[in-house]
Nucleic acid binder design. Structure first.
Lengths: 189, 189
DNA sequence: CAAAGTAAAACGAACATTCCTTCTTGACAA
DNA sequence: TTGTCAAGAAGGAATGTTCGTTTTACTTTG
């Protein structure tokens, strides 16, 4: 399964042939088809696994009480995503996530599961933002959901950049986000 | 070409057959193969086009003087991406960008071009952040490049969310980012 | 003995691409 | 105005290949 993951991350789900996967994992067709009914099932299993890593990391981070500041929260999530999930490199994980995102457009079942998972994430992070507002850290006139989606977007953008270049460290994005948080906005309109 | 774009956005580059494209654009194989040497050439042309939209929007935004605040800058970029580029919906554009990102992993030539374009974007936005620092808007102890990549990540994350759900408006992310910019950070460490 | 895997062959379906035919256009001569 | 013709453009069936999958008989492992 780890070999199939590497194939899919490297070449995409549909540009990877079963023969590629079989060669990479060193098994015969009979062995793989004993456990997966077909290529689609294999794709779904691997997409599910990859997205579960995302969901769990986001979810766990949002449950911390009191919630750390956004930059720390994001760093926590991203480190959680990239660490101890059996992926060879951070870039490989990012590439696989990109493939999963792309696949949701055409795989309705997968799309529904991704949508459900993201809804949970969004709710959790919205709650975190509300807590910021309760503490007076975040301005009260901001719609919590919008701020939550902005922060999630930051994390997703980090993953995308990691997939594309693989040269970004979590600490760098943390420092960058912290800088944005600490900006002095001239005209509070 | 617009029809091929729609096919690729909907189904991905490799899960879309030439027959799908031919049916969508209403042309025969002979007609298409007169202008594109093959499927790869068609993919590259469409990927280039999509990414050029991104590059131009980022580039143009970064050249504004004096630079607007990040939330306005981001809103400007995203609106520029989504408007008047011949794409049917914002979601469709996002889905195509996702496909292009995923394709860079396996198409070296395309990856090189994307890398070059992003390098330009990054440099421009780093310059913008430095200008913020000169004006005292952004803390001076933040590495400009990190902040620039964080902001780019925000934009990329927005595009990804747009691709996945299509229910996010630019103004919402602008408000969310503005909220983050206006946070009161308790312990300036 | 039984579960799990191997190796190789074979299958139809789907695929990208080619090749030959047909249609369209526009300049030019009668 | 009309007819001719060459060249470009498009059509569409045919081709050879690759793919996912199944099947079969045989081997390893516990």
């Amino acid at each position: 399964m780890v070999g199939a993951r590497r194939c899919f991350a490297r070449n995409g789900f549909h540009a990877t042939s079963m023969q590629d996967v079989l060669k990479e994992v060193g098994l015969s067709a009979g062995a793989v088809y004993r456990y997966f009914s077909g290529k689609d099932a294999l794709i779904e299993a691997i997409a599910d696994e990859a997205f579960a890593v995302l969901r769990d990391a986001f979810d766990e981070a949002a449950r911390q009480s009191p919630p750390p500041l956004p930059d720390e929260l994001l760093a926590y999530v991203l480190r959680k995503c990239f660490a101890g999930t059996g992926f060879e490199t951070e870039q490989e994980f990012g590439q696989l996530v990109l493939q999963v995102w792309g696949e949701t457009a055409r795989n309705e079942a997968l799309g529904a599961r991704v949508f459900a998972a993201v809804s949970v994430m969004r709710a959790g992070w919205t709650a975190v933002v509300k807590e910021y507002q309760r503490q007076g850290i975040m301005p009260a006139d901001v719609e919590p959901e919008y701020a939550a989606r902005t922060l999630m977007g930051c994390a997703m953008g980090f993953i995308a950049q990691q997939a594309l270049f693989g040269d970004l460290e979590v600490g760098q994005m943390q420092q960058g986000l912290r800088g944005v948080m600490r900006m002095e906005v001239p005209n509070p309109s």
